[in-house]
Simulated assay, not measured.
Amino acid sequence: MLAAYVTHFAPDSPLDGLEVGERPEPETPEHWTTVEVKAASLNHHDLWSLRGVGLKEQQLPMILGTDAAGVAPDGSEVIVHGVIGADGHGVGPKEPRTLLSERYPGTLAERVAVPTANLVPKPAELSFEEAACLPTAWLTAYTMLFTQGGLTPGDRVLVQGAGGGLATAAVTLGAAAGLEVWVTSRSAEKRERAVALGAAGAVETGARLPARVDAVLESVGQATWAHSIRSVRPGGSVLVCGATSGDAPPAELTRIFFQELRVQGVTMGSREDLAALARFCARTGVRPVIDAEVPLAKAAAGLARLNEGDQFGKVVVRP
């Protein structure tokens, strides 16, 4: 089958380690299902894998991808939940949690095998391309806002960065749920597009907000950490799901303890949350913002766009 995979690590030029070619068909252990992939989507996790983060040389070649939607052998349309080992289903209770493409081959392929329990029904209202955007960026945004963040209509939230899949998800979901969403970006165009998407306002990266927020969604790290800590109200939360600009500089611990801030890490979310997110989209008409669609054979072009940071929304790959 055709797949996009890591052949070697290239920390400074990640696309150098990418190859698109034939790989063996996936094995399907007991309590697993092989899904015919109709659409997948890209994440920064794929670029980190190409750089060698989270993988070892002996695991190569490794098929990339954590997100997919497709068709199960019984003909049902499904969304793949990419967290393996979270509760033992299909792998045993002692296996540590990983994401697809870390221990098991990922979704940038014509077919992918996952524990059967990891399959969530795809609502008929969502296309395969839209559904494939949900399992990582959109699920993480949903978890940060509602499950871990506990935000409710009328609350104020800051999203650091305006163009990526997580940011566009947080703006769209937050606005639909009645939150006052603020975003930051160095790009005036991306700020304007975020407001058009439903953000209450957008400011340059590091600029002061009109008022402090109840929570910050932080995925940038070093470049925005100090601004995040200074933008949240006393007793508020900073929810962290990544560090694309590197680990944070001084942690602002004095401000954290004095202002009694909560710092919460988030990695994607549960299958139950993914199913709830899919239903939320189906019922409200909310849909993922898709920046570009590329065929699997040209996955490198999609990853290059992600690496350059020019996208606004998700990049979808179609086998």
Rank of each mutant, 00 (worst) to 15 (best):
T98C: 15
K122S: 10
D310V: 15
R262G: 15
H44C: 04
I290D: 14
D12G: 15
T184C: 00
T152M: 14
T33A: 03
P96E: 02
V316E: 09
V78C: 01
E308Y: 04
R262D: 14
G236F: 08
P115E: 12
Q259V: 04
G269Y: 00
W138D: 11
G54Q: 06
P73W: 00
K122M: 08
E192N: 04
L151C: 09
P93I: 10
D155V: 01
S185M: 11
T205V: 11
S41D: 01
G92Y: 02
I84M: 03
S219C: 12
I84L: 11
G302A: 07
L166R: 01
Y142I: 06
L296K: 04
P123V: 02
Q160G: 01
E19H: 12
A175T: 12
V159G: 05
T267Q: 13
D12M: 08
G75D: 09
L100N: 12
A109E: 10
G92S: 14
G70F: 00
T244E: 08
A188T: 08
A207C: 09
E189H: 05
G242Q: 07
L60T: 02
K298N: 07
R283C: 07
R191G: 12
A170M: 05
V112N: 02
T143F: 03
E25Q: 02
R230P: 06
V263E: 13
E57I: 09
A176H: 04
F257G: 04
L139E: 12
Y104H: 15
E110C: 03
E27T: 15
E110R: 05
P105M: 09
A248C: 11
A117D: 10
L239V: 07
H81W: 15
G235F: 10
G54R: 11
T184S: 06
V181A: 05
A131V: 02
H8I: 03
T244S: 14
V213A: 09
K190A: 09
L15Y: 07
H81T: 03
I290Q: 13
G206T: 08
R208T: 11
D46Y: 01
E130R: 01
Q58Y: 00
S228A: 12
V203I: 04
A169M: 02
A86N: 02
R23H: 01
G52E: 07
G106P: 04
D16Y: 00
T34K: 09
A175P: 05
K314I: 13
A297Y: 01
T66E: 04
E130Q: 13
T98I: 12
P73G: 13
A276H: 15
A109C: 09
